[in-house]
Design a protein around this nucleic acid. Structure first.
Length: 428
DNA sequence: CCACTAACCTATTCACGTC
DNA sequence: GACGTGAATAGGTTAGTGG
């Protein structure tokens, strides 16, 4: 099924691969042990603390569940049962996509059913909808609109009869990713990045300096949003209504970063449950070698070394003991000064150069807010020793970065809208 | 070269908001 | 309650990393 990515020539189509740091992996695994199906609130908190995007956390859990079910444990059971690990955590709230936003998306969809990361980000910019939501929108759209009548170049989803699961059949690579008309999102003129002709080195996307760069990817010189096209006629209601504040308080609805960040009631109760369930009193082990925590420390202003706790608590694979050092290996690894420097984004660090290296997840000065979720989870996790020791877990090590996308603020978005004279919608 | 795994995809199903 | 559609899950594939 996977669309045979027919075009190796489209370098920028995939998002840059994130390289998780060992500490981040440990944290993810620790949480995974407690709950393989974290809800939106937990994912967001974890994402914040780890300095990576929530969508990446979600993908990680997907892959992890799969990996897990593969290697051991019959996939049969863990089918997310309601009462399993506590109250089913809430899903992300529905994202309300306005008609005008839909129009933009539909337009783009007709041109390219498989937009790459650059195109998706461009759309995100144009619509104000977070990129991950756009990706989902396209997935749903493809599933529900089987590309009928070849109205455009490439189409004909040579697939089987409705439903003929390409699953087992050969995916007919041809159709996917139609050799589309220039991927231009229809509009005015999207930033070059979105056009991503086939052979262009990936843009300097959101990998490098997260908190520094406001508009990642598509950072085209010049105004990014330029292309925000809006169907002539309704510039006003474009601002998506974020679930969190339906009342529309324009209070800076974070366009890109998850909207529902605030109020995360579930986290508390979840932890509660976790603690109760695991019966772990509270195994915080002050770790002796505090050095490690700095790897991610910045994310937790007031919190003590969460990495430390993480390591100690997780008891890495074979150490059930709460305070025992995990594999000295990783620790040592984490403690590398170079890495720390890199993580901190300090110059002189051997870190990868943001420009061309893979995205390396890293901490970032984060939001002060809520107490560390990890802290609690890790403490709770202490009891479980992971039987499935991190498979090999090579170390991705150092890196700077983190992918926090900072999209346009509502104001900026509005401003962009204003700038638009009113491009004629190609379609309608 | 190869193993590992992040990123993506399809197919399905769940669930929320509307009518 | 039906319907439309966003969100999530399982499971398969592709491709970047690093040993």
């Amino acid at each position: 099924m996977a669309r045979a990515r027919v075009s190796p020539e489209k370098p920028g189509s995939r998002r840059r691969r994130l390289v998780l740091k060992p500490s981040q992996k440990d944290a993810l695994q620790a949480l995974f042990q407690q709950n393989p199906y974290p809800g939106i609130a937990t994912r967001e908190r974890l994402a914040r603390e780890l300095g990576i995007d929530e969508s990446r956390v979600q993908v990680w859990f997907q892959n992890q569940r799969r990996r897990r079910s593969k290697q051991s444990r019959p996939p049969s059971e863990h089918v997310r049962q309601e009462g399993e690990g506590g109250p089913t955590e809430a899903r992300r709230k529905r994202t309300v996509i306005s008609p005008s936003q839909t129009r933009i998306l539909v337009q783009a969809f007709t041109r390219d059913r498989f937009p790459g990361i650059a195109a998706r980000e461009e759309l995100a910019r144009q619509t104000g909808i977070p990129e991950p939501r756009i990706q989902i929108w396209f997935q749903n759209r493809r599933a529900r609109h089987p590309q009928r009548s070849p109205s455009g170049p490439g189409n004909g989803r040579a697939q089987g009869p409705g439903g003929a699961p390409a699953t087992t059949t050969t995916p007919a690579p041809e159709d996917r990713r139609a050799p589309p008309a220039p991927l231009m999102i229809f509009v005015v003129q999207p930033s070059p990045a979105a056009l991503q002709p086939s052979g262009r080195p990936p843009p300097p996307p959101q990998g490098a300096a997260p908190w520094a760069a406001c508009s990642p990817a598509v950072t085209a010189p010049g105004l990014p949003g330029q292309g925000a096209i809006l169907p002539p006629g309704q510039p006003e209601t474009h601002i998506p209504r974020w679930p969190e504040s339906p009342s529309g308080e324009g209070t800076a609805p974070p366009l890109e970063p998850q909207p529902q960040a605030p109020s995360l009631p579930s986290s508390t109760s979840l932890l509660d449950e976790l603690l109760a369930a695991t019966g772990v009193p509270d195994t915080q082990a002050p770790s002796p070698g505090a050095a490690a925590d700095e790897g991610v420390g910045p994310a937790l202003p007031g919190a003590p070394s969460f990495l430390d706790e993480l390591l100690a608590a997780t008891g890495t694979p074979d150490t059930p003991g709460p305070s025992l050092g995990p594999s000295a290996d990783e620790r040592a690894h984490l403690a590398l000064p170079g890495e720390l420097l890199a993580a901190a984004g300090l110059p002189g660090s051997p870190g990868p150069s943001p420009g061309s290296s893979p995205v390396v997840a890293g901490p970032h000065p984060a939001l002060p807010g809520p107490p560390s979720l990890l802290e609690e989870i890790l403490a709770a996790t202490a009891i479980q020793d992971t039987p499935w020791s991190s498979p090999g877990s090579p170390a991705g090590e150092e890196g700077v970065e983190a992918t926090l996308e900072t999209p346009l603020s509502e104001d900026e978005y509005q401003a962009l809208l204003d700038m638009l004279p009113g491009s004629p919608g190609p379609g309608a």
